[in-house]
Write a protein that binds this DNA or RNA. Structure first.
Lengths: 142, 142
DNA sequence: ATTATTTCTTGATATTTATCAAGTGTTTAT
DNA sequence: ATAAACACTTGATAAATATCAAGAAATAAT
């Protein structure tokens, strides 16, 4: 588990030889391969630094120990999880009813810097579209 | 927050006059409008019983009290959250790289009973497709 | 029982997006 | 500086899905 001080990271899964990026984050966010935490599998998702990064890392054992000995930490972890879940739920919801164009517009509005630091193919993957389609959406959005 | 003993429930959001179903659950699952818990808004998502249900409900205040006074409860809540998050993450991932046909097949394989108890339009919405498309996918899957 | 309402299906067409292929630009390595 | 690798764009075509419209089937209401 890590807190991102600076830089860009992505999470992806390798399916049929293809990388599916499903999360990209930068400063101020927490990143965890929670699925491997939960399912106790060694390397469930892949995490990759897209740029140079400064991170504050807590390993699994330390995290577990903190949860058991520091009630405040467990409480914090709980709040962090709840927020992450709520945000993911909203993201899922937007996947279900918005067009690619809308999702691109929203992302570009909220994180314009992303497009300068992260290869477009990763962004396309995260939006659930091909790089070609993203390339076209970018033009038609102006 | 409720534990479902029997029956079917769905969660949906009303967007531009349209209902978007994003979760359907039945016995053995927990259901919470977590977003309203987190963002403290009174009624963020809608929850509806699709069939008659038997539920075990814990209201917000009781939940908060339990979290503060019972360390074991907080620990349980944490695990529940982590699992929910991991499952949602996997669902999101499958949204990004699978076809509608595949998603339908998987759902039908894992929850065939769903199709006998829940209106197909809700299932279609949850799969991110129109009722017409679902109707066609069902035929071509045989 | 009959009507009314809702839900699901089917067909025809339009729109969106993927795929394939080729080309252009940009970074990296030697 | 040049070549190689990588990233992005553009065009043509195919596939998937949405939309619109109408009808059939199932459910609820009287």
């Amino acid at each position: 588990m890590a807190f991102i001080e600076s830089g860009y990271l992505r999470m992806f899964d390798l399916i049929d030889g293809k990388e599916i990026t499903f999360w990209i984050g930068s400063n101020g966010k927490f990143i965890t391969s929670l699925s491997s935490f939960v399912f106790e599998t060694p390397n469930f998702w892949n995490i990759q630094a897209v740029t140079d990064c400064t991170l504050h890392v807590i390993d699994r054992d330390t995290h577990s120990k903190l949860c058991k000995t520091q009630p405040k930490w467990l409480e914090f972890d709980n709040i962090l999880l709840a927020h992450s879940f709520a945000l993911l739920e909203q993201k899922m919801l937007s996947q279900l009813h918005t067009t690619s164009q809308q999702r691109f517009n929203t992302l570009f509005k909220e994180h314009p810097q992303l497009f300068n630091h992260v290869p477009l193919q990763y962004i396309a993957s995260m939006l659930g579209i091909t790089p070609e389609t993203l390339s076209r959406l970018r033009q038609h959005s102006n």
